[in-house]
Amino acid sequence: MRKFAARWGTFRRYSGLLRELVVRDIKVRYRRSFLGLVWTVLNPLLMMLVMTLVFSTIFRSNIENFPVYLLTGNIVFALNADSTSQALMSIVGNAGLIKKVYIPKYLFPLSKVLSCLVNFGFSLIALLIVMLITHSPFYPSLLLFWAPLVGLFLFSSGLSLILSAVNVYFRDVGHLYSVLITAWTYLTPIFYPIEILPPVMQKIVFWNPLYQYIKYFRLLVLAGTVPEWDTNLYCFGAGALMLAAGTAVFKKLQDHFILHI
């Protein structure tokens, strides 16, 4: 218990740094661009536009309000994909700092996930714009939009911790993971409905956590219903498990980071 209190104390002390790191990420990302922060909204909008143009002709019959369907899937998936692939390099990229000053090292992957979460907030503006344009109904369940995000935040943090730690030892992880992300994109029903998959694939995709988070989010936004307990259990359970695994791996490996970066 005392150990936990000490950890919490350290975290409190460095929460300012976490904030600075997140702010830095956001500032640096669009620093030299003309439109600056507008890009955080514009980016998902343009993406949606392109993909709608390409895919809507194929899937139009099955899905109502395809733009919103696509955008919801896309931004939730992007939250996980962006945060984990940025976090992947976070330890190696901050080698200079880690070698010189004592900082709790988990702050680096965590700051990446948080800055992507802030980014996600801007994407929500894009979502609202699209919903207004397409005249989609605003359900009261929308107010629960944060619920799947909490689960996904835990999940992404856990995965980020694992990836950033393992990447210190094996730099191949970066290359491998970018391939994996592509595969993951296609295995997640972002721009297609899950029903078009053969039954075997549907079973596999069911165990893809990202599918569950997206489903949760879509149920809130598109269907106006709150998911059953099993989806809830799955989402939060997967998040908690991944975070536990990530913490365990990170904790075991972190003492030797400095010898490898």
Binding site: Y14, G16, L17, E20, L21, R24, L97, V101
Partner: peptide, 24 residues
Amino acid sequence: AGFDFDLSATENVFLGGAILGYPR
């Protein structure tokens, strides 16, 4: 150590201070 070279001195003062654990 820990400066971000794309940021200005002002921004780096706060970043550098945070790295040393000083409150904003």
